[in-house]
Amino acid sequence: MRPSLFRIFIRFLKLGLTAFGGPAMVPYIRTMAVDREQWLDERTFRLGMSVTQIIPGATAMQVAAFVGLRARGGPGALAAYLGFGLPAFLLMLGLSALYFSTRDLPAVMAAFKGLQLVIVALILHAAINFAKRYLDSPAAQLLACVAGVWLGLRGNPILALAVVCVLSIFVFRQEQGTLPAKPERIDTAPLRFAGLLAAALAVFVGALYILDPELFRLGLLMIKIDCFAFGGGYVSVPLMLHEVVEVRGWLSGVQFMDGIALGQVTPGPIVMTGAFVGYAIAGVTGALVATIAVFSPSLIFLCAAMPFADRLLASPMAQRVLKGSLISLVGLLAAVAVRFFLSVEWGVVEAVIAFAAFIALRMKADILWVVIAGAAVSALLL
């Protein structure tokens, strides 16, 4: 028997309350959906995991939406998406309000300075992990360096991503599809639902254009960031940094780092930093607009891609483009780590805290506890 939309929402709401670590939540989603609820089988779940790797969006959010899609179609995907993301949004909203009202207090400033040190360690840690996984050849290393240097020169990261993906089509000809194509009848229901979501998003953006030009620009920017977030939520960090800090000046570099830090003490994907940006611009309304805009395109992509999942995974070109996006991610993250490093006022205590955080992360300590410890120690010592 198919689950109700309310049951899907509640199950993912419970998971969303503890969704720390982003992609680390995928095994928990699998246990709930495959073993406990039996909404789909193991092969179908693996198919969903594969598809979410080659379309933009935060991985855990996309996997949650896939489960809902297979359990109850488009409405099920939306219910899962909302349930899984709601706790992160509400907590980020509360922390953003607290941040902008108390950031001048000495203890709060010291705590956030510690969080900035942890974020430097976190981004460097992520860059190293991605480099070990995806830079498997001199060509990949060279392309990653090109992307990193380009961002270091304040170039547009989306351009770097696009160029590396195009080059990867020709450089990595050995990349092949992961599953054979199957001449099955295409189920067009998810495609129709994707069309409805796209139409709703267009109406939403149009209303913003009429009501508030600033919110319109915010929404349009977040849509663009999500459309290019191949490889998971971390891709959004260099994209958002470039657009929010350098191009528009909505936040300072330090404030943006604080937003990422808050994203690490909330459940859900790092791209929830978009809600922090939105709150800085237009309060609660801005946070809501930014969140809707930064998550909607990836849900549309997922629903539109599912009828063609087997064919998409069998496409060598799709695999090469994915590889290129992941390679560019390494370079972009490395450049962001350098930029954040240069934004911090360093001293002996700061260096010790950052180094300790980096070692803890390399030893696979839970990110949440590293962030909390960094803030607590900094509030006492800085």
Rank of each mutant, 00 (worst) to 15 (best):
S4P: 02
L5Y: 14
R7E: 05
I10H: 09
R11E: 15
L15K: 03
L17K: 06
A24P: 09
Y28N: 10
V34A: 02
V34N: 02
D41P: 01
R46W: 07
G48K: 03
G57L: 11
A58C: 13
M61R: 12
L69F: 09
R70E: 15
R72M: 13
G73K: 13
Y81M: 15
Y81C: 10
Y81D: 11
F89S: 05
F89R: 06
L91Y: 08
L95E: 10
L95H: 03
A97Y: 03
Y99I: 07
D104Y: 06
P106K: 04
F112E: 01
F112Q: 02
K113R: 08
G114K: 00
I119L: 13
I119Y: 04
V120L: 06
L122T: 01
I123V: 15
H125F: 14
A127Y: 04
A131L: 11
A131F: 04
K132Y: 08
Y134H: 14
P138F: 08
A139C: 09
A144L: 04
A144S: 12
G152S: 13
R154G: 08
L161T: 06
A162V: 14
V163C: 11
V164Q: 10
C165M: 14
V166T: 15
L167C: 14
I169E: 12
V171T: 14
F172D: 05
F172G: 02
P180F: 02
P180R: 07
P180I: 12
E184M: 09
P190N: 03
F193Q: 08
L196N: 07
A199K: 07
V203M: 06
I210W: 11
L211C: 05
L211A: 15
D212F: 00
F216C: 09
F216Y: 08
M222A: 05
I223C: 14
I223K: 11
K224C: 01
F230K: 02
G232P: 00
S236K: 06
V245G: 03
V245T: 10
V247A: 05
R248L: 04
R248M: 05
S252G: 09
V254H: 03
D258V: 04
D258M: 02
I260H: 06
L262E: 01
G263A: 07
V265W: 03
V265T: 03
P269L: 04
F276D: 05
I281D: 11
L288C: 10
L288P: 03
T291Q: 02
I292M: 10
S296W: 12
S298A: 11
I300L: 10
I300W: 10
P307C: 04
D310R: 15
D310A: 15
D310P: 12
R311M: 12
P316Q: 12
Q319D: 07
R320M: 05
L329F: 01
L329M: 13
V330F: 06
G331K: 08
A334K: 00
A335V: 08
V336L: 09
A337W: 08
S343T: 15
E345Y: 00
V348T: 09
E350V: 07
A351F: 09
V352E: 01
I353W: 00
A357T: 00
F358Q: 04
I359G: 04
I359E: 00
L361T: 00
L361P: 00
R362V: 03
M363H: 10
M363N: 15
W369R: 05
V371F: 14
I372Q: 00
V377A: 10
L380M: 07
L381R: 14
